[in-house]
Structures are given as structure tokens and as C-alpha cells.
């Protein structure tokens, strides 16, 4: 094993180009577990800790460009207004110690269906900034996850940042685990209201081979809100519509039975979380989130 310590982003890209099999390690919260438990022996470890740029973010008018290594602890504390869904998800990651090290870039790199940041990225709308010595490309989150623990990165690419749409309405995140802290998701759900475009977006974690959006549920709800004039009136979402939204969200799942939970439970729980997060976000929208319309 060789330990590569690039001092700059350019050096990191060069190292990755030279050693495409190199495994990037930032917070180490996934990679080191695999090494400690003898499940993985990469030829090269590519340490990204020395690259300061990766720990910074820029807040633009429409999006936040979040450095790949910004730890969850900072997201949950400092980006609550801009990225409320992701901030909520960040707060559910592992433990305080893990949140001081783990990052969205790591979550994307590992591409586990259970990664906590995927659902809010899908719900908010995000593009992964992948870079190599060949250049930069922006991969929409929906296209980034290609299979269980597989992603769209080319062997020579590294994740530089994630460009996440700034919230224009309330967002929520919920995750089920069989413990009240420090759990890997049995399943997770994120919902973002987008009053500006009068759309809603969702993200589901750990209930399919990859993180997915519940598009039918989104379309249904957007139509129901539109038809009912809810965006203007702020009237509560009719329970029948909320139920249908929840059913459609569950329908978007393609879960498995595993040691963490049954497929049936996962579908059921996603439906419950969809209904609840809809209630919470809509309540927030009614209570003041509607200002976002003219923001």
C-alpha cells in the first residue's frame, strides 16, 4: 500500500490520473473501517485532508457550492438556512465524532444506498462537480448513483464539490433506524418544497439499490397543490392527497430484506415518513415559508 499526500487539488488530480485505482480518503469514516476489518487493501490511499479548498463552501444566489470534504458538523451548524434538508440529514450521521470527519464528498464516493446525504441532495436538486486532469463535469445527483456502492465517476475523477440548490422553501429529512442515535439508515426520506417553481422533490435512501426520487409522488403532489390552489392559499394538504403521496413514495421503493430491516417495513416506513415530512414542510410553508415565493 502506498500513501499519497497531495498538497493541492491539482496534485490530487495528477495523482488520481497516474493511479486510477487510488482510493481517496478524506474523513476516513468508510475507508478506514474497511481497512481495519481487512475488507479492502487498496494499492494506493489518496489523502485529501491537505487540500484546504475542499473544506470551504461558497453561497451563490441560487446554489451552494459545497466543498467535498466539508464535515457534516459544519453543515448542520452553518448551512441550516441554505441547505435545511442536508443540515437535518447531517445531524443524523453517525456520532459527533463521525460528523467532525465525514463529508458529503465521502458519502457520494462510497455511494452506499444508505448514505444520509443522498436523499436531501436529490430533494434539493444537486450536481456533483467531478474533476480530472481532463476537465470538469457536472453530474446531476439523479445520474450519479449507478448501483449499489457504484457511482458515475470515471476512474481518474475526484469529487471537487457539490452544487446544491439553495432552499426556496421548507425541507425535511427523516431516517429510520432501530436506535435513537448512531444508526445506519434502515430507510430515509427527504422532501423539499420548491414554491418558486411550484414543485416538490423527494429523495429516498436505503430502500432501493440506489438513492432514488419518488417522481410519481412528486408529480402527483405538485398537481394536487396546483389544482387546489394551495400554494396561494396555504390551505392544508387534504389527508387523501397526503395519503396518496405517501403511497406513491412507497411505490418508488425497491427494497430488500436484510439484517437491518424487511422490505415490507421499508416501504411502510417510507410512506409514513413521506406523509409526516409533507405535514411538517407544508406547516412551515403556511407559517411563513410562503415568503419564499417573492424571495
Amino acid at each position: 500500500m502506498e500513501f499519497l499526500r497531495p498538497g493541492s487539488w491539482e496534485e490530487a488530480l495528477a495523482a488520481k490520473a497516474e493511479h486510477p485505482a487510488a482510493v481517496p480518503v478524506a474523513g476516513g469514516t468508510d475507508v478506514m473501517v474497511e481497512i481495519n476489518f481487512d475488507r479492502r487493501r487498496p494499492e494506493y490511499l489518496l489523502d485529501l485532508n491537505r487540500i484546504g479548498d475542499l473544506y470551504e463552501w461558497e453561497t451563490g444566489e441560487d446554489e451552494v457550492r459545497l466543498g467535498a470534504s466539508v464535515p457534516y458538523a459544519r453543515i448542520m451548524e452553518e448551512l441550516r438556512a441554505e441547505l435545511p434538508g442536508l443540515a437535518l440529514a447531517a445531524h443524523t450521521v453517525g456520532s459527533p465524532q463521525i460528523r467532525n470527519r465525514g463529508s458529503v464528498g465521502g458519502n457520494l464516493g462510497a455511494a452506499s444506498p444508505a448514505g444520509d446525504s443522498h436523499p436531501p441532495l436529490l430533494a434539493a436538486g444537486a450536481r456533483v462537480e467531478a474533476e480530472s486532469v481532463r476537465g470538469t463535469r457536472l453530474i446531476p445527483a439523479e445520474e450519479f448513483y449507478t448501483g449499489v456502492k457504484r457511482n458515475a465517476l470515471a476512474p481518474d475523477e475526484l469529487i471537487r464539490a457539490v452544487r446544491i440548490a439553495r432552499a426556496d422553501g421548507p425541507q425535511q429529512f427523516s431516517k429510520v433506524g432501530t436506535r435513537n442515535a448512531m444508526v445506519i439508515a434502515v430507510c430515509a426520506f427527504s422532501l423539499a418544497l420548491h414554491p418558486r417553481s411550484r414543485t416538490v422533490r423527494t429523495g429516498i435512501g436505503s430502500a432501493a439499490p440506489t438513492p432514488v426520487r419518488a417522481r410519481a409522488a412528486e408529480d402527483f403532489l405538485a398537481a394536487a397543490l396546483e389544482e387546489g390552489g394551495h400554494w396561494e392559499s396555504g390551505r392544508p394538504v387534504p389527508p387523501s392527497a397526503a395519503r396518496r403521496f405517501a403511497e406513491l413514495a412507497a411505490g418508488a421503493c425497491n427494497p430488500i430484506d436484510d439484517v437491518r430491516g424487511s422490505a415490507r417495513y421499508r416501504r411502510h416506513a417510507v410512506a409514513v415518513m413521506a406523509r409526516r415530512t409533507l405535514g411538517w414542510t407544508w406547516e412551515a410553508y403556511r407559517a411563513g415559508g410562503r415568503e419564499h415565493r417573492c424571495a
Partner: peptide
């Protein structure tokens, strides 16, 4: 939420 079932995972605000 720390006092609720699910804790930090934010699964309920009292519902159910």
C-alpha cells in the same frame, strides 16, 4: 426530537 422515539433521526414530532 432527542426526547422522541427515533431521536435525532427526526422521524416524529409527536405523531403516532
Amino acid at each position: 426530537v432527542r426526547a422522541l422515539p427515533g431521536g435525532l433521526s427526526n422521524t416524529t414530532h409527536g405523531e403516532g
